[in-house]
């Protein structure tokens, strides 16, 4: 379950203690709830059901691309 899509954080704002993010997902910009502390504009997150549930880790992302690359070509 649990469709999650990558999104770029454009802005953050607070409503009381709640952190609301403006994120860009494909062709749209949407406000979502932050489920992660200390996000900054420019970071990428996984958004599920209107909540950012996880950061996308740039280093690991590069890593997996390499793994794929290898697996795809090694044979």
């Amino acid at each position: 379950m649990c469709l999650g899509v990558p999104a770029e954080v454009l802005e953050t704002r607070k409503e009381g203690e709640l952190v609301i993010l403006k994120v860009k997902m494909g062709g749209v910009v949407k406000e979502v709830i932050s489920g992660i502390p200390d996000l900054k504009p420019g970071e990428y997150v996984i958004v599920h059901a209107g909540v950012a549930i996880s950061r996308i880790d740039e280093k690991e992302l590069k890593e997996i691309l390499n793994v794929w690359e290898e697996l795809g070509s090694l044979y």
Binding site: M1, C2, E15, G16, I33, G35, A49, V51, I53
Partner: peptide, 18 residues
């Protein structure tokens, strides 16, 4: 409705009393 992935969607706003 949901599994653990979806729980923060209500938990965070409830916790923050909004």
């Amino acid at each position: 409705v949901g599994f653990e992935t979806t729980m923060p969607s209500t938990a965070v706003p409830l916790y923050n009393k909004v």
